[in-house]
Structures are given as structure tokens and as C-alpha cells.
Design a protein around this nucleic acid. Structure first.
Lengths: 341, 341
DNA sequence: ATGAAAGCGCTAACAC
DNA sequence: GTGTTAGCGCTTTCAT
């Protein structure tokens, strides 16, 4: 039963073709191309020459099937709490870029998948069980914390970017969002704000922790922190924030935005409303994206070390693939004081 | 020669295991799970039940090897002209996000690779010839136009995002950069600018076309357009632009930035130098990234339809995979007038 | 140092 | 409708 395939006129498609041309066995070609075995130098050179001449590349599918390792790391972005959000949130994409860089450097390829997990659905297992990837990086916990816990019990080579909870079972790398929230609130208070609001969606664990940290500090000063629930969907965000800002003006004098993007939107809308930042309203963001330096006034924010996070994720994952156990890593964020608070 | 592997206690790992449990042959299981063949309903249900119970997923590596199709599209980002640039340029990443969305929707997975092609190096062939992907999307031509032409002669399922040149052989989707440049310059002139400069690196074909279009219009008005070569590497960009802006002040009153990111940097640096936009300096950007709305003043820019581009790329690629010939697509950009010019 | 051969797990003729 | 079987292209013992 010949596999039906387009006739390929390339004379040397398989290692066997090449072997015939070189007058050796397929095994020898495999060894020569792999480089590691002890093949006669002349034989190797000859094989390499032919391979180069014909632009031959060993079929990775076959190689990987045989070796039971794929050289591919899956990166999956669950978008549960933000149905509308595309894979286009700047922060995720920046992290993704760094992950690509790190993985490439380590010789792995990166397979990207975006999912909108329905509450009862298996979105992770098909990816993990597909035999296509050696390990998986989950970017953001979304509202899938419990599901991640379950999966982690049966599947070791997984590292998640997100929020760490005491005693959790899945390996996570992320910022200390509680601390970040505290730093943000301390700054707002130091800048003289009295009536504060958190702008963001506290359904995501990361954001909930940011709120919580900020709230703790607020209470310690005898102040309160309101919630202005705003979502990140790129399309609706601006109008949503516009509405929030109309209400916020006069009621608050300090905003802690869950992300820089949100902070930026607040800044823009407040300007439209004729309010001055930081005079009428102090603002602190979160992430320290490159644009935070370029706004007017430049954004006071909490910096997450995205590149460092990517490095840590990949490092932990490779250790897990090698069979090691690993701890989670919580990275301390830092306050960057600029012009908005 | 048993492949050495960790002992897997999962009772049903292969289609054959499952077949034994179900009391049928592997072939039947394969058919049942594939869904398409005519399998007895009872048999199918039984097989599906067992599969679900044991969390069984057919090994994709084997399936793909056998079927000679991978269900994976490669996305590769060549970074030739920007050695330092990571995969973190906002525009590329936004496009990448949309590509991920489109491909996911069509049932394809996305394999991401970042390369820094040395001038003489084969960076595309290894990816194409790896047998891991059914087709490839190249995001940006970088300085590899000629190489892409060569590859296109021998490999059909490839679509490139970038600049279209008359008579080129590789299939490309991209904006009409020449037109974009013209629109930008027309706006600068209409806004009253007299001494203009283009901020960007004209080694990339896209940028060269933007410059060229702008230059044509400038000349038609008897004006000249200088070049301020600035690179996109996220790290060095700000300082580089800072130097350029110091020189620019007083010499120019209108800037056409190759990208919004560059325009943003110009805006920021000019503010630091105490100059007002648009009074002292008109600025037009390119891309219309979401942040362009949020700057102060909001950025006048040339909009590229990134989502539409992604859709077109995927559509063309799938047609090429199916064996069709396809034309290139050039999309008209539009001028978005905001506050900077 | 090289050849021979047995699969990796799955699919699709082909036969019944 | 289901079983049988011959590979997809590669790697790796085992034998020489």
C-alpha cells in the first residue's frame, strides 16, 4: 500500500536514497548525519557532501517517532476569563517573544496554541497527549487554576506563568503580585492619594493578588480601595475605561491599574476629560512595558522582569523534562517611579 | 531493539493496546477514532468509551509520519537587518497573534521559529525540509528578498509578509508601502511642514518603499526628505532616537517615522527636549498600533490592517498547500489623522 | 567502522 | 464492517 504522495522529483529524499548514492548503508548515513557516532572521516565527508549537494534533510517526523522525543515545547495561552481577548495582549506577546528566544537558544522549537477553555472542557490534555511536544508552558492561569492542579498531578513537564498560591501542586513562575500590589499602594499613598480604586478584573488570580496586596496597605492606612472591573479585550477596553473614568473623576484621586495597558487607557481618557495627571489623579500601572517610558507623563509602574521570567520558565521546564523535581519561582517586582504618581 | 523509554504505567498507550481491550483490531480503532470511515456504531462507542476512560490520544508523530501531512504551519521571523532585535517588536507580535488565531480556527498548529540569518546561511531550508510543517509563513522580508525568491522557485507552500516588487516570484501579502509613504507625506505637507526627515532603516524593503513614496511626494512639492537611520532593537532604540532628535530639532519641522514605535520614541524624546508636537514638529507614524490612540497628543499615522493581513496570509497559504497557484495581495493602507500632524 | 534488521505507532489498501 | 498487512523514514542494537 504505497502512501499516495505527490511525486517528488528530488532524487534523494530519504536517508536510504542517500545511502545508495554514497554506497553505504542507511545506518551509516544516519550516524554520519547525527555526527555523534564514530564514522570514518572520509565516509562522513562523502555523505555530508552528497547531503549538501541535494539539500537533503532527514525527516524529523520519522526521527522523532523513533527517538520518542520531539524537540518541541508547546506554549499554550488559555483565554478563559477574557473571551474576547485575542492572543494580542502586549504582555503575553512580550513574554512569548522572550520564550521563543530562550527556547531557540536551547535548541527547541516552539509550538503555539491559543485556547478558549470552556469550563468543562479538556483543553490541555489533547495538547499534552498528542505526542507532539516534550513539555508545555502555560502562559497565564486565566480561571483554570484547579484544572492546572489536576493536570500537574499526572504530567510532570509543565511550567505555568502565573500566581503562586501556598501549597499548590503545579510548578509556576511569576511575580509576587501581592508585593507588587503593596508597592503600588504605598506609592499612591506617599504621593498623597486618599480615595483609591483598582482598575482591573479580579477573576484572574494574578490580578486578585495585586488587588489584595494593595488593599492590605490601604487598610493599614485606614483607607479603602474600590474596584473598577475592567477587561483587557483590546477592542472594548477603551470604551469601557472611558465609562469608568467618567465615574472615577471626582470620586477618586488615585488609581492602581492591573496592567500598564489599562493605565494607559485611563491616562488617555482622563486627558480627554480635561483632568491632569498626577495633579487630579495619581496612577500606578503594572508590568513596565517599554511604552510606559513614552507616555506623557511617563508612567509610574510596577516592573515585572519578563525576560528573566522567560529564562526561569525554560530552565525549570528543561529540568522537569530531564526528570527532576522543581520548586516554583516567585520573582519580586519593583516600583518604578515616573511621572504619574 | 526496544526503544529505551521510561516505563509507562498507563495501560493503554497505543492504538494496539486499545484494540486489545476493545477486542477489535488496531485498524478498526484507527478508523473509529478518525471518525470518517464506516464503523459499526456500537464498536465506535465502545472504542470511544475506552479511549476516554484512559485518556488515550493517538500519537501524532506516528500519524503524521504515516499520512505525510503534519497539520502544522511554520511561522518564521528572520531578523537579518536588526541583529539585536528580539522577537518582541510589537507589530510582528500583533501579526503573530492574529496568525495564531486564524490558523487555530482552520485546525492548524503553529510552529514558531526565530532566526538571525547570516548572509550566506540556509535558514529557511532546514525548516521547510524538516518534514515537520506543511507550509511556511515568513514574517517580514528583512534583507532576505533574494533568498526568498530562490526558495520560492522550489517550494510552493510559502507566503511572505512584506513588500511586493514588480515581477517577484514569492507570494507576498502586505501593505502598499509606497502609497502609505505618499499619504504620510501628503499629510505632513498639508499640516505645513517644510523640512522633512524619514526616521527608520531603509535596508528593509518595506521601509524603503515607505521612504520612496514619501520622497516622491516631497519632490513633487519641491521639498526634500532627509534620512535619519534608526533601528528597531527595543533596547537601543530610545537612546538612538534621542541622539537623532537632538540633531533634528531646528533642522526639521516634519518627521515621517517608519513605525509607530519609532514615532512614539520621537514624541517622547522631543518632549524631553521641551519641544511641542505638532507646533514645533509634525509627526506621522506607520502601523496604527492600539497605543497610537493613547499617546499625547494621539498619533497621526498610516493604518495597516494587520488582522486582515493575517487572514489573507492564511487563506493564500492553505490554497497553496492544496496545490493552487496564487497571486500576491497588496492591501491599501489608510491615513488616520489625529493630533501629531 | 559498517551492515542488517527490528521496530517507533499509526494508516490505508486490500481481502473477506 | 473489520482484520490483515505493509510500510511512512528514521535510529539503534547486534553482529561482523
Amino acid at each position: 500500500m504505497p502512501v499516495d504522495r505527490k511525486p517528488d522529483d528530488r532524487p534523494v529524499r530519504t536517508i536510504t536514497d542517500l545511502a545508495k548514492l554514497a554506497g553505504v548503508s542507511p545506518g551509516t548515513v544516519s550516524r554520519a548525519l547525527a555526527g555523534n557516532s564514530l564514522v570514518n572521516d572520509k565516509t562522513r565527508e562523502k555523505i555530508e557532501a552528497i547531503a549538501r549537494e541535494h539539500g537533503f534533510r532527514p525527516n524529523q517526523m520519522a526521527s522523532r517517532l523513533r527517538r520518542q522525543r520531539t524537540g518541541v515545547i508547546g506554549v499554550i495561552i488559555p483565554l478563559g476569563h477574557e473571551q474576547k481577548q485575542q492572543v494580542s495582549d502586549t504582555f503575553f506577546l512580550t513574554l512569548l517573544g522572550h520564550l521563543a528566544d530562550e527556547l531557540t537558544e536551547k535548541g527547541y522549537d516552539l509550538m503555539l496554541r491559543r485556547v478558549v477553555p470552556a469550563s468543562d472542557e479538556d483543553w490541555l490534555d489533547p495538547f499534552i497527549g498528542s505526542g507532539m511536544i516534550d513539555g508545555v508552558i502555560v502562559v497565564g492561569q486565566s480561571d483554570q487554576f484547579n484544572h492546572l492542579e489536576e493536570v500537574a498531578d499526572g504530567y510532570r513537564p509543565m511550567v505555568v506563568w502565573g500566581q503562586h498560591r501556598e501549597g499548590q501542586r503545579h510548578c509556576v513562575v511569576g511575580s509576587d503580585n501581592l508585593l507588587g500590589g503593596k508597592l503600588a499602594m504605598q506609592r499612591l499613598v506617599a504621593a498623597g492619594a486618599k480615595r483609591m480604586a483598582f482598575v482591573g478584573d479580579t477573576n484572574a488570580p494574578e490580578f486578585a493578588a495585586r488587588y489584595s496586596g494593595a488593599n492590605q496597605v490601604a487598610q493599614s492606612f485606614g483607607l479603602t480601595l474600590s474596584e473598577l472591573p475592567a477587561h483587557l479585550a483590546t477592542s472594548g477596553m477603551t470604551t469601557e475605561v472611558a465609562t469608568l473614568m467618567e465615574k472615577a473623576v471626582g470620586n477618586y484621586d488615585g488609581l492602581f491599574a492591573a496592567t500598564d495597558l489599562l493605565a494607559l487607557a485611563c491616562l488617555g481618557e482622563l486627558r480627554k476629560l480635561g483632568r491632569n495627571v498626577p495633579e487630579d489623579m495619581k496612577i500606578v500601572g503594572f508590568d513596565d512595558l517599554p511604552i510606559a517610558q513614552q507616555t506623557a507623563p511617563p508612567l509610574t509602574t510596577i516592573r515585572q522582569d519578563i525576560a528573566g521570567g522567560a529564562r526561569a520558565i525554560v530552565q525549570l521546564l528543561l529540568r522537569r523534562i530531564a526528570g527532576e523535581e522543581t520548586e516554583s519561582i516567585v520573582m519580586p517586582p519593583t516600583l518604578v517611579v515616573r511621572g504619574t504618581a
